[in-house]
Simulated scan of single mutants.
Amino acid sequence: MALINTQVKPFNASAFKAGEFVEVSEKDIAGKWSIFFFYPADFTFVCPTELGDVADHYAELQSRGVEVYSVSTDTHFTHKAWHDSSDTIGKIQYTMIGDPTGELCRNFDVMREGQGLADRGTFIVDPDGIIQAMEITAEGIGRDAEDLMRKVKAAQYVAAHPGEVCPAAWKEGEATLAPSLDLVGKI
Rank of each mutant, 00 (worst) to 15 (best):
M1G: 07
L3C: 02
I4T: 13
I4Y: 07
N5K: 03
V8A: 05
K9F: 05
P10W: 00
N12G: 04
A13Q: 15
A13T: 00
A13G: 01
S14P: 00
F16N: 04
K17V: 12
A18T: 06
A18Q: 15
A18P: 04
G19A: 13
V22E: 03
S25I: 09
D28F: 04
G31E: 05
G31L: 10
K32G: 04
W33D: 07
F37M: 13
Y39K: 14
P40C: 08
A41S: 08
A41I: 01
A41K: 15
D42K: 04
T44P: 03
F45M: 03
C47D: 08
C47R: 05
P48Q: 03
P48R: 04
L51M: 14
D53K: 01
V54G: 00
D56A: 15
D56Y: 09
H57F: 09
H57D: 09
A59H: 08
E60S: 13
L61R: 00
L61E: 02
L61S: 06
S63E: 12
S63W: 03
G65R: 11
V66L: 04
V66Y: 10
V66N: 07
E67L: 08
E67A: 11
V68Q: 08
Y69D: 04
V71G: 06
V71I: 08
S72K: 09
T75P: 08
F77W: 13
F77C: 10
T78N: 05
H79T: 08
H79A: 13
W82E: 06
H83D: 07
S85N: 12
S86L: 14
S86W: 10
D87S: 14
I89N: 02
I89Q: 10
I89T: 14
I89P: 08
K91H: 12
I92F: 11
I92T: 03
Q93C: 08
Q93R: 14
Q93E: 14
T95H: 05
T95Q: 03
T95N: 04
M96F: 01
I97Q: 07
G98T: 12
D99T: 04
G102Y: 11
L104P: 02
R106Y: 00
R106M: 10
N107S: 15
N107T: 11
F108K: 05
F108R: 08
G114L: 09
G116C: 11
G116M: 12
G116K: 08
D119A: 15
R120G: 07
G121T: 06
T122P: 02
T122V: 12
F123E: 00
I130M: 14
I130R: 10
I131D: 12
T137A: 12
A138H: 06
E139Q: 14
E139D: 15
G142Y: 11
E146C: 00
E146F: 10
D147I: 09
L148E: 08
R150M: 10
V152Y: 06
V152C: 06
A155C: 15
A159F: 00
P162D: 04
V165Y: 00
P167N: 07
W170G: 03
E172K: 12
A175K: 13
T176R: 11
L177V: 15
L177A: 11
L177I: 15
S180R: 05
S180W: 07
L181S: 04
D182Y: 06
D182K: 14
I187C: 00
I187M: 15
